[in-house]
Deep mutational scan, measured.
Amino acid sequence: LVRYRTISKIPQITLNFVDLKGDPFLASPTSDREIIAPKIKERTHNVTEKVTQVLSLGADVLPEYKLQAPRIHRWTILHYSPFKAVWDWLILLLVIYTAVFTPYSAAFLLKETEEGPPATECGYACQPLAVVDLIVDIMFIVDILINFRTTYVNANEEVVSHPGRIAVHYFKGWFLIDMVAAIPFDLLIFGSGSEELIGLLKTARLLRLVRVARKLDRYSEYGAAVLFLLMCTFALIAHWLACIWYAIGNMEQPHMDSRIGWLHNLGDQIGKPYNSSGLGGPSIKDKYVTALYFTFSSLTSVGFGNVSPNTNSEKIFSICVMLIGSLMYASIFGNVSAIIQRLYSGTARYHTQMLRVREFIRFHQIPNPLRQRLEEYFQHAWSYTNGIDMNAVLKGFPECLQADICLHLNRSLLQHCKPFRGATKGCLRALAMKFKTTHAPPGDTLVHAGDLLTALYFISRGSIEILRGDVVVAILGKNDIFGEPLNLYARPGKSNGDVRALTYCDLHKIHR
């Protein structure tokens, strides 16, 4: 019993810090008490220290592992850092350059016999395009090294910054494609005289377009951006097909006994025919423009016929181009109408809503002055909100995010209106959640004399007048207030005048 009563005193000691020596009952000389009392004092002292730490809000209350900052290894790049964003855009520009100039170089340097010394005699450094290609190869190699040090988000939505895990993730992902696209074939085969082989191998750079397509997928929600990307894709495919079309004609031209190829026909049409040795002929500019003209006309199913396939190889390629053109029509131009419709969806919704308003007016036989006010209010409210119901949009977000959005939407009023000066951010967040926005066209009466005042109004834009009878008592403008002081009276009061809008007004109100 003594032991039980001794232990039962522990909660009292913990909360009230009572010393055991003052209790005459606990001072009985028993061996059990002498053993338990020192333990009680020690526990009391420890609990006292913990309570003191909690009340003082000291940093040592938290466990040590929670006080440590997340460790980022040296030379690790955050995937959302500004440097990584700028670097990704730079790589994107280099990939676009590669997609345009690599097929052009591979096709127009394929057994090209233009006048001038061969590239091997001039030297590697004197070729501007080769120098640019070398810079692109170096940048792609540097990009691989950067990807080995860039964080990523795993399946659990955690940012991984450990170098080993980053390397394994990159090896399992895009490393092989990036490595093949970054191989400097110019340096590996330079001086061997195989410019045709170098041009063909350099087309491996186009593998990076797969990554670019995935990154550009984030802009699919913007109709104008999608339309622009589709047109660029169409032009890029036409450019690639033009390079292939020229390569076919250029390879067949020296081996044909009869002059029936499209390059021969082009030379005869523009007065620059090929001679018996295969030299001469149109310039590279004429060849490229004509090839691009043929691919565009074939892809769009126009086909004027002034550039036509004559050999079997050219006919087979033309059939493939027609098939590609039909697929592009289905996948690209078939979506253009939907994209344009999405661009004008706001206008369509406006006309639909206006039609419903006019049908309501016609069905209920609203008189002319009231009908005009109804239409003007709808037009003004639509121009202010673009038909978007803010309350319906915010309803799907958590309250903390709703408060931040409301604070942002009402920031101008909260910053410049005098009653809100000096208020804490928590108070402003709470008030912003209570605001209701209303609009009024010129001549609209917001409050009639004798109406119950259940709200306090803040003028965000425009001006109003307060009338008693036919006498203008006051004219209020931006950041002015009218209405009933909230919670100042037990019952809502009545208006002693009319409140009429002089201009288009936007008002925020808080109800009782």
Rank of each mutant, 00 (worst) to 15 (best):
Y65Q: 14
K66N: 11
P70L: 09
P70H: 15
R71V: 14
I72Y: 14
H73E: 12
W75H: 04
S81F: 01
W87M: 01
W89Y: 03
V95C: 03
I96S: 01
A99W: 01
F101C: 07
F101P: 01
T102G: 03
T102F: 01
P103D: 01
L110V: 14
E112K: 11
G116Q: 15
P117S: 08
P118A: 07
P118K: 15
C122E: 01
A125Q: 07
P128G: 05
V132M: 14
I138T: 03
I138L: 12
I146C: 07
T150M: 01
N154S: 14
A155S: 14
E157Y: 04
P163S: 06
P163I: 04
R165Y: 07
R165F: 09
I166A: 03
H169M: 06
H169G: 04
F175I: 01
L176G: 12
I177N: 01
F185H: 04
L188V: 13
G191I: 04
L197V: 08
L197S: 03
I198D: 02
G199M: 08
A204E: 01
A204P: 05
R205C: 01
R205H: 06
L209W: 01
A213K: 10
R218H: 05
S220P: 05
V226Y: 13
T233P: 01
A238M: 04
L241Q: 01
A242G: 01
I248N: 01
N250D: 01
M251C: 01
D257W: 01
L266V: 01
D268M: 13
Q269T: 03
S283R: 01
S283M: 01
I284W: 01
D286F: 01
T290Y: 01
T295V: 13
L299P: 01
G305V: 01
N306Q: 01
V307Y: 03
L323I: 07
I324Q: 01
L327T: 01
M328L: 14
A330P: 13
I332C: 06
S337M: 06
I340C: 03
R342W: 09
L343D: 12
L343V: 07
Y344T: 07
S345H: 12
T347L: 06
R356K: 15
R358P: 03
F363H: 11
H364T: 06
H364D: 03
R371Q: 11
E375N: 08
E375Y: 04
Q379S: 10
S383P: 08
T385W: 04
N386Y: 07
M390V: 05
A392K: 14
G396W: 11
P398H: 03
C400V: 06
H408V: 03
L409W: 03
L414R: 03
Q415N: 08
C417R: 06
K418C: 04
R421V: 09
G422M: 11
T424C: 09
G426L: 02
C427T: 10
G443C: 01
L446V: 08
A449P: 02
